[in-house]
Simulated assay, not measured.
Amino acid sequence: MRRVSLLESFEVDVRAGRSGRPRPAHARQATAPTTVSLLVGDLSRQGILERREDEADRRRRIIGIAADRQPAITAWLAPGAAARRKALAPLTPDQRQLLVDTLLAYEAAVSGEEQG
């Protein structure tokens, strides 16, 4: 499940035009940096993600979906994204945020990464 969430966040960055300077991966996931690092490492070894230097700050690495994998990842994530949009459409922005916050809290509790 976490791999899907991570890929979805990279896909959102690509569609939003943020692939050049995306948010830190752990911030997207509300997950410990070490957990995201392990996921990124695994997906990079499989050729799904690629890492490159940040031209503005050589200490940073920009991580994104490998160009040759982008169409397949987009197609694979599309049914879930469409279902999510349909399910969330009747909710107000506040209701959507409450749902997201609740699911994040649930996932953190299940994984033992509760914050606070």
Rank of each mutant, 00 (worst) to 15 (best):
M1I: 13
R2V: 11
V4E: 08
S5V: 04
E8T: 15
S9G: 07
D13Y: 02
D13N: 06
D13W: 07
R15T: 09
A16C: 14
R21H: 13
P24H: 09
A25H: 00
H26R: 04
H26K: 04
R28A: 14
T31G: 00
P33K: 03
L39K: 03
L39T: 03
D42K: 12
L43S: 00
L43V: 01
R45C: 11
Q46H: 14
I48F: 08
L49S: 07
R52I: 00
E53N: 11
E55T: 11
A56P: 08
R59M: 03
R60C: 14
R60M: 12
R61M: 06
I62V: 13
G64Q: 08
I65A: 01
A67N: 07
D68M: 11
R69H: 06
Q70T: 10
I73S: 01
A75Y: 01
A75C: 06
W76Y: 11
L77C: 01
P79E: 06
A81E: 13
A89V: 09
A89E: 04
D94T: 00
D94L: 13
Q95L: 10
T102M: 08
T102P: 05
L104C: 13
E107W: 13
A108M: 08
A109W: 02
A109M: 10
A109S: 07
E113I: 02
E113K: 02
E114R: 12
E114W: 06
Q115K: 14
G116C: 09
G116S: 14
